[in-house]
Design a protein around this nucleic acid. Structure first.
Lengths: 336, 336
DNA sequence: CGCTGGCACTCATCGTGTCAGAGTGCCAAT
DNA sequence: ATTGGCACTCTGACACGATGAGTGCCAGCG
């Protein structure tokens, strides 16, 4: 019988702690919620919740705070909350007139950090690869060129290649022409074959192979995955996070690698939004933070992720709603 | 006579406070420095320095700490310090094998934040404009194209243009060809004229003008100036900054605009490294931080800036040395 | 059997008071 | 001009007790 009420008590504790950031006691709970039972009863439930490891008390005579496991249980039993209307409008207007992919991502991450009042992270969409639209070689120095590859899916990849010898302008121009003749219009796999053949052609300079490799790689979706973030000042705002815990978090964000791995793991979580709470991130620096993430991109393959990162004591319902909503809108924009 | 010693006392106070982050008193000063005078004498000097507004005491029975003005005086009378050898090597190896401009900037900002142990900021080099090397139109939707402009100085600018009507593939392809014929090889000013003429040609579609404008703008050096930063976690490290002062600083960094203005102002300061201390930044959020900046770029025009931002209580000599050194090396790389 | 009121207990927090020490300013002496 | 001496001020640390929030447990009630 008490099973359901215990859940309600846990929820009340989470909500109380999230809004006041102070341990919540049985008396306050009985007074300010509609549980309809006395403090003593709540205390009994609390004792059980504590046995189950869902809540803990910082010291003997303080109220209870949720543990990571407690948040997890709370989140798992959460009915998805509705999005505020004002937020819906904000999303629509915010993303309306972006000029290119970078701009879309930039706006999205700003938006998400404002909606959630947390640190927002957005992963650049990983391309499945698209036809090569144009290759351009730009001379940088006597023996260096910049290779620019424009794909049909509007990606623009660039990379420098060392030629290993001084090369005349017209040799570069000639390579540029034949390169385009060979690769333009081909999908990545076909392009790789064609480019290898191109580099192996009689009379090609030694550096042709390097260039061919670079172009192949670029066509295939680029080398690096990137994550951009915004709203880092939210980490410092309020009593969100202990002062000495925010340095490591900033490091982890700049590190990229950690974050990439984590997002990658979360991609396979299933459900529309994934949540990692505290120690679940399995990252020391993020031991006191949670991440709420959702995939976006061409429908079906949830290729890329975006999300919000904040203290474990965050407002999960509204954060999840905001992440879900931005992911949905961003999918629309990217798909088109 | 005491003029010179007072300077030495100020310097000792600055150095003491920087290294201990605690107010420094006359006794400690007499003991741990080679001033060769008694505490009482130092106290007299301190009284004068305080009258001049160069130092202050947090409360009656504490030692002195430098004011913004005190730091300023200290910095102004600083003989430029030598760079540590290990740092020199770090710079050389760090920037050695960058693959493109983004990579160079990325590495530089990382490097600078490590050397200074402060937040490093690097402004993207502002282009004076260079010849148009190639223009590419990529269809994004029925009525949208992505315009990619590659310049001879290895910049790649991109922007989306709304066409206002549905356009057939071959119309875009045709425009793409004639656009390149018209603009390639021209310097920005000439390109603008040529593009206007191109758009005004008989038989051109209505959207030609929008595309011409976009290309002109891209050729001219792009629209947005950007600043990247790294090492934000240094703000939280140690007793560098009050805990509640770091939020606003993070905001200011993400804001970009504030920082851009400030760097722009500093560009015209003269001298090889410019320093703004505390309130001199004339920015509330940065009231307790200082910025050390230096220009880099093609020799002569100090087109772009890079620098380090940290608490007013920072190690100015070594920060200035690091900023100067990175600026110098980066100039070499960009120039080539 | 579950809920409730009562009660004793624990422990963080806060205000007060005391004390030592650091640092100063001033003055007379060199 | 510099120095030693001295009285003074103020912070920070520590101890102490009062306060009160919150708990666990138990007996009684529906």
């Amino acid at each position: 019988m008490s099973e359901e009420r215990r859940r309600a008590v846990l929820a009340a504790i989470v909500e109380g702690y999230v809004s006041t950031s102070e341990p919540v006691g049985s008396k306050a709970l009985a007074a300010h919620t509609a549980l309809g039972v006395s403090p003593a009863t709540i205390r009994n439930d609390m004792a059980i919740l504590e046995d189950e490891g869902l809540i803990a008390q910082p010291h003997t005579s303080a109220g209870r705070i949720p543990t990571d496991k407690g948040y997890r249980s709370f989140v798992d039993h959460l009915a998805s909350a509705a999005m505020q209307d004002s937020h819906k409008r904000a999303i629509a207007t915010f993303l309306a007139d972006a000029v290119d992919l970078n701009d879309v991502i930039e706006r999205s991450v700003r938006l998400l950090s404002q909606l959630t009042r947390q640190v927002a992270v957005v992963q650049y969409p990983s391309s499945q690869g698209a036809a090569v639209q144009r290759v351009e070689l730009v001379r940088l120095g006597a023996d260096r060129v910049l290779v620019v590859v424009v794909s049909a899916d509007a990606r623009v990849e660039q990379s420098t290649v060392m030629l290993g010898e001084e090369v005349a302008d017209d040799a570069i121009a000639a390579a540029n022409r034949s390169l385009n003749d060979a690769a333009v219009g081909l999908m990545p796999d076909a392009a790789r074959v064609a480019l290898a053949a191109w580099a192996a052609r009689a009379g090609q300079p030694t550096w042709a192979k390097d260039i061919a490799d670079t172009v192949s790689q670029a066509a295939q979706g680029g080398v690096v995955q990137r994550v951009v973030f915004s709203g880092t000042s939210n980490l410092a705002r309020g009593a969100g996070l202990e002062a000495d815990a925010i340095g490591p978090v900033l490091d982890a964000l700049e590190e990229q690698v950690v974050l990439m791995r984590l997002l990658h793991e979360m991609a396979s979580d299933g459900g529309d939004v994934a949540v990692r709470i505290g120690a679940e991130t399995r990252t020391d620096a993020l031991a006191h933070t949670s991440i709420v993430a959702a995939g976006y991109g061409r429908s079906g393959d949830a290729s890329s992720l975006l999300g919000a990162l904040g203290p474990t004591r965050m407002d999960y319902p509204s954060t999840m709603a905001a992440v879900r909503a931005v992911a949905r809108y961003l999918s629309k924009v990217v798909e088109s």
